Deep mutational scan, measured.
Amino acid sequence: KRPMNAFMVWSQIERRKIMEQSPDMHNAEISKRLGKRWKLLKDSDKIPFIREAERLRLKHMADYPDYK
Results as ranks from 00 to 15, higher is better:
Ala53Gly: 02
Ile50Cys: 03
Pro65Glu: 13
Ala62Thr: 13
Asp45Arg: 02
Pro3Thr: 12
Val9Lys: 00
Glu20Ala: 07
Pro48His: 06
Ile50Leu: 09
Ser22Cys: 13
Ile50Phe: 13
Ala53Tyr: 06
Met4Thr: 11
Ala28Trp: 07
Pro3Val: 10
Met4Arg: 01
Asp63Phe: 07
Tyr67Met: 12
Lys1Asn: 08
Arg33Gly: 07
His26Gly: 11
Met19Asp: 04
Arg37Val: 09
Tyr64Trp: 07
Asp24Pro: 03
Ile47Pro: 01
Phe49Thr: 03
Ile18Ala: 04
Met19Ile: 13
Tyr67Asn: 14
Glu20Pro: 03
Met4Tyr: 08
Asp66Tyr: 03
Lys36Cys: 04
Met4Ala: 08
Ala62Asp: 14
Arg55Leu: 06
Lys46Ala: 00
Lys59Cys: 09
Lys17Leu: 08
Trp10Arg: 02
Arg55Trp: 04
Lys36Arg: 12
Leu41Arg: 00
Lys46Asp: 03
Asp43Val: 07
Glu20Tyr: 01
Asn27Gly: 11
Gln12Val: 04
Gln12Ala: 10
Ala53Ser: 05
Tyr67Val: 15
Ser11Gln: 06
Met25Glu: 06
Leu58Met: 12
Ser44Phe: 04
Arg55Ala: 11
Glu54Thr: 07
Ser22Arg: 08
Trp10His: 02
Gln21Gly: 07
Pro3Gln: 12
Phe49Leu: 03
Gln12Arg: 07
Lys42Cys: 07
Ala6His: 00
Ser31Trp: 11
Asn27Tyr: 09
Ala28Leu: 09
Ile30Lys: 00
Leu40Val: 06
Ser31Tyr: 07
Asp43Asn: 06
Tyr64Cys: 12
Ile47Leu: 14
Asn27His: 14
Met8Gly: 14
Glu54Arg: 04
Gln21Asp: 06
Lys17Ile: 09
Asp45Asn: 02
Arg33His: 12
Met8Asp: 14
Arg55Met: 08
Ile13Cys: 06
Glu29Tyr: 02
Arg33Asn: 15
Gln12Tyr: 06
Glu54Phe: 03
Pro65Val: 11
Trp38Lys: 02
Lys32Ser: 12
Arg55Ser: 06
Glu54Pro: 01
Ile13Pro: 04
Ala62Phe: 08
Asp24Tyr: 08
Met61Leu: 12
Pro23Ala: 03
Asn27Gln: 13
Arg37Glu: 14
Glu29Trp: 01
Ser22Asn: 13
Leu34Thr: 00
Met61Tyr: 06
Ser22Ala: 12
Glu52Gln: 06
Asp45Glu: 12
Lys68Cys: 07
Lys46His: 00
Lys46Leu: 02
Ser44Pro: 04
Lys1Val: 04
Gln12Gly: 07
Ile50Lys: 05
Glu29His: 01
His26Arg: 13
Pro3Met: 09
Ile30Phe: 00
Arg15Val: 04
Arg57Thr: 09
Leu58Lys: 12
Lys46Ser: 00
Gln21Met: 07
Met4Val: 12
Leu34Trp: 02
Lys59Glu: 13
Ala28Pro: 07
Ser44Glu: 15
Asp24His: 14
Ala62Val: 10
Leu34Val: 01
Met19Gln: 11
Gln21Glu: 12
Lys32Met: 14
Leu56Val: 06
Met25Ile: 13
Met19Glu: 13
Leu41Val: 03
Pro3Ala: 11
Asp43Gln: 06
Lys59Trp: 05
His60Ala: 12
Asp24Thr: 08
Leu41Glu: 01
Leu40Met: 13
Lys1Arg: 06
Ile18Cys: 07
Asp43Pro: 10
Glu54Asn: 10
